[in-house]
């Protein structure tokens, strides 16, 4: 068990190295720092001097992977690759292209991101699993049929429309909550209420349908027939037998995204003006601030891998077949 987890953690290292090399190639080889400087400065202001200055200010004036002018280890460390990519392994994200401390930003923005993402995740899971169970309990009736139709219709609507529609109706027409913004203390609830509800509703269609399929697959199994032959009521069969087994794929599918909740939601945060990591990323993309995007890619990969490891652990917790191997 422990050896298994240690092996998974070790396996993460080559993956992170791969991610690192990939991002390095993408950001520094496909386009050279000169290209980026030209892009950032804009066509009008591009002069050779301006480019040199721009690169020097941001530390992009070093060689990519090997510095011929330095001695010994410095030949490898005094390079863009070491300064901008290898340092990420120590979670040293450096400064963004416009000069602020990325690590500081991440620390400060994680909380608002989590304040939105966590309730959406927990409530969403609860609501969709309940709805799917409800449909399955009434399977074959018109409730189920219309439930499925509603799910397909709901999953055919872009998440953008859920947000725009929610803001328009709830905030603008009914004036129940502010359209966007973020506050301190208990005030936060006022700002988060709408984004959370919208986030939950936006995921109902696809997830309910997916969970319903899992439940139905489980219901066709032999042990369910055994449970019915014991004289158990349909609800007992569903909650004690089917739910326990179906939760294995559902929970483990959900666990992998838990660490990524820290990253927040790009769209919702920028629409609702929540100062989280999602809106930070969006702003960086719009400002073409590659340093931030690079940091986010690395952070996201780390969190995803943590999610994978958590998934493995959660498997061993919920599935006795794996726990006792």
């Amino acid at each position: 068990m422990l050896a298994y987890i240690v092996r998974r953690v070790l396996y993460a290292i080559p993956i992170l190295i791969g991610v690192n090399l990939l991002t390095f190639t993408l950001f520094f080889v496909v386009n050279t720092p000169d290209d980026m400087a030209r892009m950032q400065l804009g066509i009008k202001r591009v002069t050779p001097e301006a480019i040199v200055k721009w690169k020097a200010e941001r530390g992009y004036d070093k060689p990519l992977v090997y510095n011929e002018r330095s001695q010994g280890v410095r030949a490898l460390t005094d390079t863009i690759f070491f300064e901008k990519s290898v340092r990420l392994f120590a979670f040293d994200f450096g400064r963004s292209d416009n000069g602020d401390d990325i690590s500081w930003q991440i620390r400060n923005r994680m909380v608002p991101s989590l304040a939105l993402a966590l309730p959406v995740f927990v409530l969403g899971l609860y609501v969709t699993v309940s709805l799917a169970l409800f449909q399955v309990l009434f399977r074959g009736t018109w409730l189920d049929v219309w439930g499925v139709i509603l799910c397909v219709a709901m999953m055919s609507i872009s998440s953008l429309f859920y947000i725009i529609g929610g803001q328009f109706v709830v905030s603008k027409l009914w004036r129940l909550v502010p359209i966007s913004g973020y506050g301190e203390g208990i005030d936060v609830v006022r700002f988060l209420l709408l984004p959370v509800v919208v986030g939950v509703i936006g995921n109902i269609g696809a997830n309910t349908r997916w969970y319903r399929t899992i439940f139905l697959e489980e219901i066709g199994r032999d042990y369910v027939r055994t449970a019915r032959a014991k004289g158990l009521a349909e609800t007992a069969v569903l909650f004690r037998h089917v739910l326990r087994n179906a939760l294995i794929p559902i929970l483990t599918g959900a666990v992998v995204v838990i660490p990524l909740l820290f990253m927040g939601s790009l769209i919702a945060e920028s629409f609702f003006g929540i100062p989280g990591l999602g809106s930070y990323t969006i702003d960086a993309i719009n400002a073409q601030d590659f340093a931030i995007v690079r940091a986010m890619v690395f952070l996201g990969s780390v969190l995803y891998i943590v999610g994978l490891i958590l998934t493995d652990i959660s498997y061993t917790l919920v599935d006795p077949r794996i726990r006792f191997e």
Binding site: V19, L22, L26, V30, L266, F290, Y304, L308
Partner: peptide
């Protein structure tokens, strides 16, 4: 797969 999709797309599109 370990790079969150939106970020990988964002990075690639920016480049």
């Amino acid at each position: 797969n370990s790079i969150p999709g939106v970020l990988l797309i964002a990075a690639s599109v920016l480049m």
